[in-house]
Structures are given as C-alpha cells and as structure tokens.
Nucleic acid binder design. Structure first.
Lengths: 192, 192, 192, 192
DNA sequence: TATGAATGAGCGTTCATTCAT
DNA sequence: TATGAATGAACGCTCATTCAT
C-alpha cells in the first residue's frame, strides 16, 4: 500500500519536473512560471507546493540535476592528464553555470545552505565536484605540498571566478576557458 | 542659481543616504524598503528614483562606500610582511562582506558591471582592492612566476571563496581567517 | 495639489465601488470576485488593496451603503403611527438584509467591531438605525416605562430575530413581516 | 460482527472528538484545523469525513454538546423566581456563547437548520432552551398577554442581543449580565 | 526636482474536501 | 471503513517602479 502511494507521488513529481524542463527548454530558466508548470503538468497549484517548498526549491532540484548530469559526464571521461585537459573537462559545466545570469545567481544562492538539514541538490553538487576534482588530483603529478582536497577547493574558487568574469563587463572579452586554464596553471603548477 | 539647485539636490541625496543608513543600522541591508527610506527622509517615493536609478543603485552606493571605508583602513596600515598578516589585514573586509547573505549577493552581482560606462561603486572597489593587493605583492618576496596582477586576481578569488564558506552549512565550522590564510599560503607561497 | 490628488483617489475608489456594484447587480454579493472587480474597474489589483484592507472591507462599504440607503428612505417617510406601520417601514431593510445568507453573515460579522477605531460602515448603520427608531419612539404613544433608547435596542433585537427566522428551516414558513409585527406589538405595546 | 464494527466506528469517532477537544483546549475553536485533529487522533484525513459531513458538522457537535452541558446545569438549578435570577441563570451559557466571535457565528449559523430533517445539535439546543424558558415562564407570575412560547422567543432574541453587545466596540463597556437583566425586565415585566 | 497614487505580474497560501486505492 | 495525495479557486500580498501633475 505504501509503495503504491509512493508511486503516485513519484509520478506526480515526475510530471512536474518534466513540465518544468519542457518550459525551460523553450524559454530558459528565468522565464519559468509556476503557473505554466502546473498547467503543463496537469496538476493543481496546491500540488506544486506540496512537492516543492517554493519555486526556488524547484530550481534547486532542476539546476542541481543538470549539474549532476555534467558531473556524470565528467566522471565518465578519462582522467585529464594536463591542466589544459582539466580546464577543458570543466568547460561544459562552466558553460551551463553561466548560461543565464539567473542560473548563476540561483547556484550561488544555494551553494551554501543555512543549516545542515537544508543542504539541497546544488549544495550537494559542490561537494561532489570537490570530490571528483580531488580524486583526479590525487592521481596527478601536480602539487604535492598541499592536499588534493585543498587543491580541489582552489579549483572551485577559480571555476567560480571564471564564471563571474563571464558576467563582468571589464573582462567578458576574455575566453573563459583560457582564463580558467591560466588560473589552474598558476594554482596547480606553480613555478612550472 | 545652478549652485542653489545643486545644494538642494545634494541635501536631499544626503537625507536619503542618512535615512537608508539608519534603516540598515536597525534592521540590516536585506530588510531595507524604499518605502521606509523615503518615509524617514521625509521625501516622496518618486524623489528617491530621481536620485537613484533603482534600489540596487542605492545598495551599490552604500555597500561600496562601506567597502571603501575598509580599504581606507587597509591602506592606512603598514604593508603586511607575511601572508598571515595579509589575511589578517583583509579580515575586517571579509567580515563585512559576509555580514549578510544578501550583502554578499549584492557584492557578487555588482563585482562585474554591465558595461564599462556603468562601473559602479562596488565594481570600483574590486578594482581598487586588486590594485592595493598587487602593489603589496610587487613589494613582497613571493611568487615571481606570475604577475602581481594575476596573483591579486587569485587573492580575490580566495577571498570570495572564504566568504562563501561562511554561508556554507557543510563548512561553517571553519574559521574564515584561518581558511583564508591557508588559501593565500597555498596560492602565494607554493612549495614553501 | 493635495486636493487634485485626493480627487484622483476618490475617482479610483468610485471606479472600484461602481464596478463592484455592477458585479453584484449581475451575480449577487457572494459571487463577487476581487479579480473581476479590478478587471471591470480597469485598475490594478494592488490598487484594490490600497483602497480596501481586504474583500471584507469592500463588502462592509457596499452593504453598509445599501443599509444607509434604506435608512434614508425610512427617514424620508412619515413617522409610523402604528406598530404595523413601523414593522412595514422596516420591511425593505429586512428584505435586503435577508436577500442572501452571505449578506446576513457579513452584516452579523460587522455589526460589532473589535475596537472603536475599527467601527465600520455596517456597525455605524446599527447605531443609526437605533437612533432613527429611538426618535420615532420618542414621539409615539407606546411604552413610557422604559427609555426610547432601550425600546430601540429591543426593536433591533427583534429585527435580527425576524431575519434569522428567514434562514431557519423550522420557521421559514412564517411571514417575516407578520412575525416582526408580532414581536414589536409584544415589545412596544404589552398588555395592549 | 455488526456490533464489532460499530464499536470500532464509535472508537474512531471518540478519538476524533477527543482530539478536537484537545486542540480547542489549546488554541480555541477558530484555530481548529482538520489536519491537526486527524494528526492527534492518529487517523487519516479521509476518515474524518467518513465520520463528519464537514468541519462544520464537527463544530455543530462540539458546540452543541457544550451548550447542552450548560442547559443541564441550568435545569439542575432551582427555577428562578425573579428576572434577575433568570438572567443570572443564563449567564454561564451567555459567557460560553461569547467566548469567541467564531463560536457565536457558528451558533447563529446553526440556530436555524437548512431543513427539518437536518436539525443539528445546536439547533436542538435552541429548541431546548426555548422549552426550558417557556416552562419557567409558565410557572412565573409575569406577562399573561402573550404566550410563554412567544415570551421564550423574546428571551432568546435578547440573549443573542446581549451577546452581540459583547462583540460591539460601541457597547462593550456594558456588563452583559446587567444588560440582559434590563432587557428581560423590560420584556417580561413591562410597566413593573 | 518633487509628489504619491497607481501599477502589475506572479508568488505563496489556504485548507476543507474529494476520490482512487 | 480507512487512507492520504491531490484538488482548486481565490485571496492576499509584495514592493520596486512609473508617470501624470
């Protein structure tokens, strides 16, 4: 009985997520309207808020899932052997994260959570990205003076910095990939 | 006559800024409402928008001014001689920037400007901070493999990262100052 | 300047009230939707709530105005000379008050106010009705053992009772006018 | 078997009523939510509606039972010999009926029933109160010009009026008991 | 410049009630 | 009977921004 009910719940949730993804595919994240999502999903508005605390929680799910998809692809690749390869490996993720100013804002907003209990999908992906990066770095010949974890944290800082520059008038002429590669070289291969 | 008008304008602007500061002193930045600011300033709502393009422009002014105040203090100090001193020198600024999630968001949003012509107060402070840092680094015995400007960019990335951790449930146990020092050591004095 | 602004305000308010009255004329009080009112009035929803605390406040205005209209008519009539005439004089008001269960509920809800500052239109009409009745009774040859004011309070109690019976399954066969006349005879002309 | 089922049913019903009473004891009638009642009773929401037509039916039960409790106490007392005694006898009931605006509204709404077949608990108590009052009045030396039943109807009208005044900002300074006594004296002992 | 009423689009909420299981 | 996810139709609200005066 409990399983049957859960399945209905999961189905409704899936309908909502599918509808939301369809809306986003057409008009982007920022233009998403709760009204339209429930309309497409064929469910009541009340149902939406029974599944997601608010619109932001839906965004957390959707964007978190997309980041996870990118991390899946990143993990499926061969471990990068050079810093340029590493920068290249991150580029699809960087591109997604900077696809819309709104998306980047949502990501920044959710990258830290107010309490442990509230760690959401996006916050989780930050942890995951750090793990993936640290695993790579553990296998790579770069810096030995600091831990792979610390190296990974730095990589994240520079990924965010690279994305920020996309939205920055003073720097948006620079190629993000080139910029990221420069940062990573300076960070991971000093004095090289 | 022109001078008289300008003085009235400046007076109104000052009234608005004073009122805004008073509101913030009481309830913080996020809770600031234009309504309350104009009420306290004793002017009409429309007047507010004659002086500031939008609410964000006011925030840009206020937060930019506060950051500048911190940079003044930083510049007034002796040039830091160690990385720990450098981290310590930045801490008051870090503390202010992380006083509210909202403040950090505003800062990130304004750290890059929409167009060169519109570089606002906060974006200016980022430039200024980079200059101050680069000037310090030009005199310091650290990395020679990369330019002081790139080093300064990295310092900024790590300052932002350190602030981010303050808002991150998964890491908010760490002391920001210690973390920043760790980052800066790894960035500015690799293999040391 | 202040007058010009007030006129615009009054005009908007009038547009809202006119629209509301039109809606009610078509579908009755209970079916009134704020959405439709603002649509017809050609104003924004926010404007509605700038003029009326909530939908109930609008109803208070509308129903209060209607009751006042009936009281105007009642006052315009000759002073009733018999109890039957008095009952007859009140009948249009009784009929209006019992035109919809919803209307009667609104009236009861607003007949007393939570605080002096909140005495609304409907509550005012209760006071006015008492005054009108007391004025009549001061001129009439009925009971001298109690004050006209107390007599008027009793009349109100019986008017409400008569309306209640309209909505009461056990009694809705009785003619409200006849019932009210019976009550008023027993109240105003005991032992007669 | 039928008995076993009936016992389970009665048990569930009792659980719901107990839970409802507990909720009311804590937060009052108006704040009662079906959600919380079923949560406390440990049953599903649907079960609630298998036992009560709607939330109002529950309120009818609960408030009707409370009124009946007061009528039991009233009947257990000696027959009042004076009008002041009668007013005093009704006071506990008046106090309960005016404990919350919401309670008074529910009572008024149910005082008449939608159809003879649906006379609910509260409507029954009105009938019972009228009977009790009429029985008292049949034994009392007051008005002979009108029937005890009509006298009783008037008493009810004045009880309601007295309660109304409790909620009326313009009159809530008056003592309900004193007011009720004044009404009843004027109604039951005119020219006395 | 100054005024302040009006705008407006959409979010969040409510919560008794229904219905398929 | 019991379950509880889903319903649904407004309402209330927000509050930065605009614009006619």
């Amino acid at each position: 009985m409990a399983r049957a009910i859960q399945q209905r719940t999961l189905k409704t949730r899936a309908k909502l997520l599918d509808a939301a993804n369809a809306v986003i595919a057409e008009n982007g994240y920022e233009a998403l309207r709760v009204e339209e999502v429930v309309l497409r999903a064929g469910v009541a508005k009340g149902t939406f808020f029974a599944h997601f605390k608010d619109k932001d929680a839906l965004m957390d799910q959707l964007i978190g899932a997309e980041i996870d998809r990118h991390l899946d692809l990143i993990e499926a690749q061969d471990v990068p052997k050079t810093i340029n390869e590493m920068a290249a490996a991150f580029m699809p993720l960087v591109t997604f994260m900077s696809c819309e100013r709104y998306v980047f804002d949502v990501i920044l907003r959710h990258s830290g959570a107010a309490a442990n209990a509230e760690v959401g999908p996006i916050a989780m992906t930050f942890g995951r990205q750090a793990e993936v990066t640290a695993a790579w770095l553990a296998d790579m010949p770069f810096r030995k003076d600091i831990s792979p974890d610390l190296q990974a944290e730095g990589v994240q800082a520079f990924v965010v910095q690279a994305i920020s520059l996309v939205f920055c008038a003073l720097h948006n002429a620079v190629d993000p990939k080139e910029r990221l590669a420069t940062y990573l070289r300076a960070w991971l291969a000093p004095n090289a």
